[in-house]
Simulated scan of single mutants.
Amino acid sequence: MMSEETKTIMLCCAAGMSTSMLVKRMQEAASQQKITAKIFACPAAEVDEKLSQENVNCILLGPQVRYMLSNIKEKVGNKPIKVDVINMQAYGMMNGAKVLQQGLELIG
């Protein structure tokens, strides 16, 4: 079996707190599905810093910071990083598998 490269998914929210539980659930889902993924959360204020440190494939925004979507897309610029808002229902239910799927579909 060919080993796939690690997918890096960054969740972004107001303070990085509400998404930390979701990160844990996404990691569990990835592990169950045997998907190699690096998933982490960061507060919106640290996006620039994280983009310079990490090889991010996609950024998922918590619904509470959906207003920052165009701002984050601007920060990403012409890098091949997909940006989207986490599905509100999946976020509310803390459905790690569904949010993981959303990220992987974005990455393609």
Rank of each mutant, 00 (worst) to 15 (best):
M1P: 00
S3C: 13
E5L: 05
T6H: 10
K7M: 11
K7V: 15
M10E: 06
L11Y: 01
L11K: 07
C12E: 10
C13Q: 08
A15F: 13
G16F: 06
M17R: 03
M17A: 12
S18W: 09
S18I: 12
S18N: 12
T19W: 06
S20T: 07
M21W: 09
L22H: 11
V23H: 11
K24S: 03
R25C: 06
R25K: 14
M26I: 03
Q27W: 04
E28R: 01
A29T: 08
I35G: 01
T36E: 13
A37M: 02
K38L: 13
K38Q: 14
F40C: 03
A41D: 05
P43D: 05
A44C: 00
A44G: 13
A44P: 06
V47I: 14
V47H: 10
D48S: 15
D48I: 09
E49T: 14
K50Y: 13
L51P: 08
L51S: 06
S52E: 13
E54D: 15
N55K: 15
N57E: 03
N57V: 13
C58M: 07
I59W: 07
I59P: 02
I59H: 01
I59Q: 03
I59Y: 01
L60R: 02
L60C: 03
L61G: 02
P63A: 03
V65R: 11
V65H: 14
R66T: 04
R66S: 15
Y67C: 07
Y67L: 04
M68E: 09
L69V: 08
N71I: 02
E74H: 02
N78S: 01
P80D: 11
K82T: 06
K82H: 05
V83W: 01
V83I: 04
N87G: 11
M88H: 14
Q89C: 10
Q89W: 08
Q89N: 10
A90W: 00
G92K: 02
G92H: 00
M93P: 14
M93V: 14
M94R: 09
N95V: 05
V99I: 05
L100P: 07
Q101C: 07
Q101T: 03
Q102H: 05
L104S: 05
E105N: 15
L106S: 13
L106Q: 11
I107G: 12
G108I: 04
G108R: 05
